[in-house]
Simulated scan of single mutants.
Amino acid sequence: MANHHDPTRPSVMAAALVATALLTGCASSGPETIEAFVAEVVPDGSSGSLVAAVDDQIVYCRGWGSADRKTNTDATCDTVYDVMSMTKQFTAAAVLKLQMQGKLDVGDPIAAHLDDVPSDKSDLTLQHLLTHTSGLVDSLGDDDEPVSRTDLVDAALSSRLLSPPGAEYRYSNVGYSLLAAIVEHASGTGYEEYLAANVFAPAGMHRTGYVRPDWSDRNVAVEYDADGTPQGRPFEHSWAADGPYWNLLGNGGMLSTARDLALWHSALRGDRILDEDSKQQLFEPRVKEEPGGDTHYAYGWVVRDGAGGPELWHNGANGRSYGEVARSADGEVLVFWVVNQSRSENPGWDFEELGPELTEGVIERLRGTE
């Protein structure tokens, strides 16, 4: 099941455990208030991790329930999960970093970086891929199909466009996999290798990646279906030696922790990864997701107006796990949460439905408005 983003979903996110005092200037509720709210909202039998930060300070980061029910391993702030379509913001950051390094431009036609581009895609640019306005289909098959980079690129280039480049917003996981291939071409290195050196390391994110971190199974959450049946850890599905196959690579499947997502937020507040111009490009609302809607896609982020001002948001789902990340456009507040069972048949609950209440409630408490 392909990672996805639902543009009709609200855009704010939730968090969990004590770390240190808040910076002055934000009238936030204390971690105990957030803890009580999270305990009230998350259903019995669920499990996941949440982090909330104000400026560069983690306010709350904790897990609840079990990362592995068979071994009774508790979920924590440092449990590793699939962050699913939230991977796209890392791919977008890699493209902008390469632009800073003079190795590509977001206005480049894809033919500058991919061979044998057919005439119907000669006008297709990197920006079209970044904003889901390429006209490409959402997916070309199952995430776990053993599809190589060459297979993916050939299939994407030979596919029929659903609309002319730039004409319509159509969410496309295929487009972000093509961006991963372009990152490899422009950098001369592997996609994960480039991210590790140019994005994750400068941010201090040592628990984020596909295969480069030294994962211990005990630290990686087992995923569960709606019946509560274990479906294994993400890398126990069909993966190549260097990570997911290319129907997933670049658009989803990245593994990370709540603590590392807080480090990502902190890095985006400064210039360790992207300069101010690049961050402005990353977050600029560019194309409406739905006619008459109030959300716009930027580069790997959704932008919408929230009660406290513009918000940046994205979600991810793979049929087993679900998660969301949200941060204020001014970089003051971050909330990220992820669960390793997205819904349950008995008792019945669904985190795609619970998400808005959880996210918005934590954001309100971070801002001291609840």
Results as ranks from 00 to 15, higher is better:
D116L: 07
V183C: 05
N173W: 03
A112S: 13
R365D: 00
T79S: 15
S158L: 03
P310L: 12
L136M: 10
I58R: 13
N340G: 13
Y194D: 01
V59S: 07
L312M: 12
S187N: 03
L124E: 00
N72Y: 03
G250L: 04
N247R: 08
G232D: 02
M86E: 11
G228K: 05
G319M: 06
S85L: 10
V303I: 12
V51T: 14
V95C: 05
G30I: 05
H296W: 15
K103H: 06
V59C: 05
P310W: 03
R212G: 00
T71C: 00
V211G: 01
R149W: 00
T73F: 02
L23Q: 09
G250C: 05
T208M: 07
R62I: 00
S158G: 04
A203Y: 06
D260A: 05
E40H: 13
A262C: 03
I182Q: 03
S85P: 11
K70R: 14
D115H: 11
V18M: 02
H128L: 04
Y297R: 14
W64C: 04
S328P: 12
G204V: 07
Y169V: 04
S119A: 14
E276T: 14
L22P: 13
G228Q: 02
P234F: 07
R9H: 08
T369R: 14
